[in-house]
C-alpha cells in the first residue's frame, strides 16, 4: 500500500503514530517521518492511521480492494 501525507494539512496531532508506530514517527525536530510503502502486513494499521487522522491528511493507494 502506498502512503501519502499532505504536509500542508498535517498539524502533528500524532494520532497516526499511535495507530501505526511501525510506519509513522516524529524525529527530534518534531517532523513527521513515514514509510511511503509499508509492507502488506501493515495494511490494517495504516488504514486505521488514515482513519484516525483528525485532519484527514493521509491518503492511501493500492489497498487490498
Amino acid at each position: 500500500m502506498r502512503v501519502h501525507v499532505d504536509r500542508a494539512v498535517c498539524e502533528n496531532h500524532g494520532q497516526c503514530v499511535f495507530a501505526a508506530p511501525e510506519v509513522f514517527a516524529f524525529d527530534d525536530d518534531e517532523v513527521l517521518r513515514y514509510d511511503p510503502s509499508p509492507g502488506p502486513g501493515l495494511d490494517e494499521a495504516v488504514t486505521r492511521a488514515a482513519r484516525v487522522c483528525p485532519l484527514r491528511a493521509i491518503t492511501l493507494d493500492g489497498g487490498p480492494e
Binding site: 500524532g14 516524529f26 518534531e30
Partner: peptide, 10 residues
Amino acid sequence: NRTSRLAAHR
C-alpha cells in the same frame, strides 16, 4: 511543541 515524546508515554 514536543509531540515526538508522546508515543513512548502512551
